Computed example of a mutant assay.
Amino acid sequence: MDNHPVSAHLVGLFFQMDGKQLQDQYKNHLSDFHDWDQKAHAENWTLFPDNIAEHLSIDETSFSNGELYTILRSKVAKGRKGTIIATIKGKKAEDIIQVLECIPLRWRGKVKAVV
């Protein structure tokens, strides 16, 4: 589940286990979720500055509950691990700028193009 987009429910079905219990065990005991340094603000934004590259893309997406998020991605990662640089709730420029300014200027200076 760490390396592939597979739900706990699906893994539970495969191994004839309760997927809900497996999800709970993973979240509370196997993953580092409770120690995650972005947990406090993750509902509003997450930031992965190590993924920054010269060419980025920015777009909006709506998740299943209708909330709109702005996603900043590295083009070089091509959708694989290391693609997401930031997820920011909403699409207001001020909110997006505020989060992106958390990335050190020397890293932001690497960016040549955003599409």
Rank of each mutant, 00 (worst) to 15 (best):
I71P: 02
A86M: 05
Q23F: 06
A86D: 05
F15Q: 09
I85Q: 03
A86T: 04
H34A: 12
I52L: 12
D95A: 14
K110H: 09
K75A: 09
E60D: 12
V115M: 13
K78F: 03
L47Q: 06
P5K: 07
Q98A: 15
A8C: 15
V111P: 03
I103T: 06
H34M: 10
K110E: 05
V114P: 03
K78C: 08
I84L: 02
K20A: 14
S57I: 06
A113G: 00
D24T: 15
Q25R: 15
F15M: 11
A93K: 15
P49N: 05
V11M: 15
F48Y: 15
S7D: 11
L47P: 06
C102T: 12
L72N: 00
G12Y: 07
G66V: 01
I97H: 03
D2P: 04
N51M: 07
K27T: 14
V114Y: 10
V76D: 09
V11R: 12
K92H: 14
K112T: 11
P104A: 12
L47V: 04
S7C: 05
C102H: 15
D50Y: 06
V115Y: 13
V6D: 06
L56R: 03
L30E: 10
A53P: 02
V6Y: 13
P5S: 09
K75R: 13
A53Y: 01
K91Q: 14
I71R: 01
F63A: 04
E67Y: 07
Q25M: 13
I52A: 02
V11F: 13
Q21W: 11
F15P: 00
D50W: 07
K81I: 14
H29T: 15
A86W: 03
H55V: 07
